[in-house]
């Protein structure tokens, strides 16, 4: 598990032409199950962030929940210095935003997006330590969100690439502390662009430090 710093920015055109941004300390839990030829990664994170815009027309409290399940298989490589893995992953983003103005008028918005993405993982073993880089981008997604009019009850929408796209990039460095303990430094960039009804774009930069306990 770990924690760190996240910068989060969102522009939800159905509510505002302004970018709302802020930073927060996320809490992260993850489980890694590495075999000889395959790797599984489950990650759960949560952050609550106070978001503001340049207009200061209203302030927003954003709740950001994220769940990821990734499975990678080793790709044949002649070199043992660099290991390549290809696989797929399932992302679940839950965003919930409560906005209020200075007159006490408030409004609630949010959406739930699950996406399926092919992924490429590259690992560079360094004695007991490990440097890794991963990129993925969704090919299909399902959103649970209000319709064009925000006041409509949420509905399920199947989204193609033209309606939902992501760019994700993760770099991590794992430092061996002891036989069963590792320290992991990670940077993750996430850009989501949802174009169902109105355009909603969000991006985040996340820097985290985690402690990993090896079971086996």
């Amino acid at each position: 598990m770990g924690t760190g710093w996240i910068y989060y920015a969102i522009k939800d055109q159905s509510v505002s032409s302004f970018t709302h941004s802020g930073s927060a300390s996320p809490v992260i839990f993850f489980v890694k199950a590495d075999g000889e030829k395959s790797k599984n990664h489950i990650q759960l994170s949560y952050a609550s962030s106070f978001l503001t815009s340049s207009s200061n027309g209203f302030s927003t409290n954003g709740q950001i929940g994220y769940l990821q399940f990734a499975h990678h298989r080793k790709f044949r490589s002649k070199s043992n210095n660099i290991l390549f893995f290809v696989g797929g992953l399932f992302d679940l983003n839950i965003n919930f935003r409560q906005s209020s103005n200075y007159s006490g008028v408030s409004d609630i918005n949010g959406e739930l997006i699950t996406s399926l993405s092919p992924s490429l993982l590259v690992e560079l073993p360094m004695r007991k330590d490990l440097l890794s880089a991963q990129v993925w981008s969704s090919i299909m997604a399902v959103s649970f969100q209000a319709g064009y009019a925000r006041s409509l009850p949420p509905q399920l929408n199947l989204l193609g690439i033209s309606e939902f796209s992501t760019i994700n990039w993760r770099m991590a460095f794992s430092k061996s502390l002891a036989v069963k303990w590792n320290l992991r430094f990670e940077y993750q960039f996430q850009l989501n662009n949802l174009r169902k009804f109105e355009t909603l774009t969000s991006l985040s930069h996340q820097l985290t430090t985690s402690v990993i306990f090896k079971v086996n």
């Binding site: 509510v15 302004f18 815009s53 207009s55 027309g57 209203f58 209020s100 103005n101 009019a149 006041s151």
Partner: peptide, 19 residues
């Protein structure tokens, strides 16, 4: 009815009916 909250560049906000 069912107004949503939006904002203006000068820091004012406004609500608009959606239903």
């Amino acid at each position: 009815t069912s107004p949503i909250l939006k904002e203006l560049p000068n820091g004012w906000s406004y609500r608009v009916s959606t239903s």
